[in-house]
């Protein structure tokens, strides 16, 4: 048994992430020093289906997890001498989550160290702390990915207030659907980002949907507007459509996030989730923060998309606050941000 695994500097956490189509493991010291971070993406396995196929994802996790964990440990120069094992227990695909949870609990048992079940959404929030461990709270976090669109006020560690969310499609889902319609391939986010650099963001004035609730989002109307526009104007330049669509999404995201930050007296704005890797969103958040005297916290793109370093970081914080998670825990595919496993 390692001495005092719950506290003290130099606490090494092995993180494991298998909630969707990324198999990942990382070793992180004290929630901010990333010693190793290995991500094996299954994107090629799912690309021909235009989205993640749960059974294919689960099977791939079983094949990939042992080598990915081994690689993360080799790169970190550790051989079982970690102080805790953290794994995503939800939300996500049940079959995929179970592969990581089962492996992580076994590793913790065999090594005689605590296991920590991590909320995937909370882990995304902690990506910012990997690079800015002393980030001043409160902050407003815009969490945007293929499955989630959340605007969150983080008041203290482990204390969140959900300000708003999407009422229909997630932001990343809108990117995927529009990219598929435009024939740009899967995943849609990076594809649109790439093509949009060649286009004019002001070419087409797509609608900016502002739902009734101040901090909610809606993207399905925008998606329909894009489809209708292209059908009506088949000669339109695809790059202009991509750039204008992206601008409409980013506009709404940035406007509402800024309003939330100002209303709640936040020190800054954090970006999180796969869509936070979008270059235009990052550029606009940076500009907006500079203009309004807010701190921009933009994790590097590899820490925005699913990874295990953020899981290890969130696990470290949860270990401090709540202690270990019992070994008879399972996966929670429908976990929400404010409910901790």
């Amino acid at each position: 048994m390692n001495p005092s695994p719950l506290a003290g500097p130099g606490t090494k956490v092995l993180g494991i992430e298998t909630s969707c189509d990324e198999t990942a493991a990382a070793v992180v010291v004290d929630a901010h020093h990333v010693v190793s971070s290995v991500v094996s993406s299954q994107v090629d396995l799912h690309a021909r289906f235009g989205g993640v196929v749960p059974e294919i994802a689960s099977r791939a996790h079983v094949e990939l997890l042992a080598p990915v964990v081994a690689q993360a440990m080799i790169e970190a120069g550790v051989d079982g001498d970690v102080d805790a094992v953290a794994a995503t227990v939800g939300p996500g695909l049940i079959g995929s989550l179970l592969v990581g949870v089962s492996a992580a609990k076994t590793l913790a048992l065999v090594w005689g160290v605590p296991f920590v079940g991590v909320n995937h959404l909370e882990a995304h929030l902690y990506a910012s702390f990997l690079e800015e461990p002393d980030l001043p709270l409160p902050v407003v976090v815009l969490l945007v990915s293929g499955g989630h669109t959340l605007l969150v006020l983080m008041e203290a560690h482990g204390r969140y207030r959900l300000l708003g969310g999407t009422i229909d499609d997630a932001a990343g889902e809108a990117f995927d659907k529009v990219a598929r319609f435009l024939g740009l391939g899967y995943p849609g986010g990076p594809a649109i980002d790439r093509v949009a650099t060649q286009g004019d963001p002001a070419a087409i004035a797509f609608p900016r949907a502002i739902p009734d609730e101040a901090y909610d989002f809606s993207f399905s109307g925008l998606k329909t507007a894009v489809i209708n526009h292209v059908r009506k104007h088949p000669e339109v330049v695809t790059a202009d459509v991509a750039a204008s669509f992206q601008e409409a999404v980013v506009d709404v995201l940035v406007t509402k996030t800024l309003a939330a930050a100002q209303q709640h007296g936040a020190s800054g704005i954090c970006l999180a989730g796969g869509v936070a890797a979008n270059s235009r969103l990052r550029e606009r958040v940076l500009d907006t923060c500079v203009q309004h005297g807010l701190h921009p916290f933009l994790p590097s793109p590899s820490m925005c998309t699913d990874n295990a370093a953020m899981v290890a970081a969130a696990g470290w914080w949860r270990l401090q606050s709540d202690g270990p998670t019992p070994l008879d825990v399972g996966a929670s595919p429908n976990l929400t941000l404010t409910f901790h496993p």
Binding site: S58, R59, V62, L98, V99, G100, S102, K105, V110
Partner: peptide, 19 residues
């Protein structure tokens, strides 16, 4: 059962890896 099967195989692999 696919899901049950994966839970056991994943734990077994982790155990073999750790030891």
């Amino acid at each position: 059962l696919f899901t049950g099967l994966r839970v056991g195989v994943s734990a077994a692999k982790a155990m073999a890896l750790a030891l």
